[in-house]
């Protein structure tokens, strides 16, 4: 038999040093904390493409020749960019939730006779509740998370719309005129000439947005999603022996330090990836970067 130290986490008062730490870092609460990192990464993975879609739509609308559509695009960009994020997050999530419940209420309970607003209460029939009152907790959490993703996508979509709109205008006009001279329709010019060339102009702005989005994920906490900041604060707070097997003084500083390291590493990795994409996109482009690449090759 080797000298394995066998310990169980059932009686942490008897433990010390590394074995105490091992038990401490594997409590159910800590596992929830680690899971929250997954929540943040999932949010980013879903939000980034969704925000791009909103941005692309917004930019296309803004440069449309149909006037009302152009107003819509420009209005979307101006309003969302002008309102503070926090105000928008708090307002939009509540408004969206009540809007969905209101519509479902109108469809599912047409013969309801009580008013929907009674004082400060917002009341819809049970069948219209989103999610249903009897659905399990994970559905409530998934619903809250989806609302958060949608809100993030709308807010960051407006910023990326602005970036893409600028990038579309930055593509040399001569390129578009040449396409037209070849007999391409406006739609063909847009998809075959403009869009492939605009990315190189959009990427610095989009990369910037991605960095801001990473840093904005703690806003999840405002939307009631238990993210890493929530758990760091909860776990780091001083714990007295009466309410936990693992009492400790105020350790919030260490938990926040861990978050700082996480965010720094994540943004560093993003920078490296963005640099690679930029190098790839500049290849063969009529920009200073593309010119430099050509010279390096010859």
């Amino acid at each position: 038999m080797g000298h394995f130290v066998i310990f169980a986490c059932t009686d942490p008062q008897t433990l010390s040093g590394l074995s105490w730490l091992t038990c401490y870092l594997t409590t159910g609460k800590h596992l929830a904390f680690y899971g929250a990192f997954g929540t943040v990464l999932l949010l980013l993975a879903v939000t980034a493409p969704a925000a791009m879609a909103f941005g692309f739509g917004g930019a296309m609308a803004a440069r449309s020749r149909i006037l009302p559509l152009s107003w819509l695009g420009r209005g979307y960009i101006a309003i969302v960019r002008g309102v503070p994020d926090i105000a928008f997050f708090l307002f939009f999530v509540i408004a969206l939730d009540q809007g969905i419940e209101y519509l479902r209420h109108k469809i599912k309970c047409p013969d309801w006779d009580e008013p929907l607003r009674q004082g400060s209460d917002f009341i819809v029939c049970q069948a219209a509740k989103m999610p249903l009152g009897n659905s399990p907790q994970w559905i409530h959490e998934a619903y809250g998370f989806s609302l958060a993703v949608l809100t993030f996508a709308i807010v960051f979509g407006a910023f990326s719309a602005n970036v893409l709109y600028g990038a579309m205008r930055a593509v040399p006009h001569a390129q578009l005129e040449t396409a037209e001279a070849y007999g391409m329709s406006p739609r063909q010019t847009f998809w075959r000439v403009l869009v492939p060339q605009m990315w190189v102009y959009a990427l610095p702005g989009l990369g910037n947005l991605w960095m801001v989005l990473i840093k904005a994920t703690p806003l999840l906490f405002l939307l009631g999603v238990e993210d890493i900041v929530y758990w760091a604060r909860e776990l780091g707070g001083a714990k007295t022996p009466r309410f936990t097997d693992f009492p400790h003084p105020d350790w919030r500083m260490w938990y926040f330090l861990a978050l700082l390291v996480f965010y720094l590493c994540f943004t560093r990795v993003s920078e490296i990836v963005l640099d690679r994409i930029m190098r790839r996109l500049t290849r063969g482009q009529a920009t200073a970067g593309g010119e430099a690449q050509r010279k390096a090759l010859t």
Partner: peptide, 8 residues
């Protein structure tokens, strides 16, 4: 009310 070690 508080969250115990198991997070409940």
């Amino acid at each position: 009310n508080f969250l115990n070690d198991a997070g409940e």
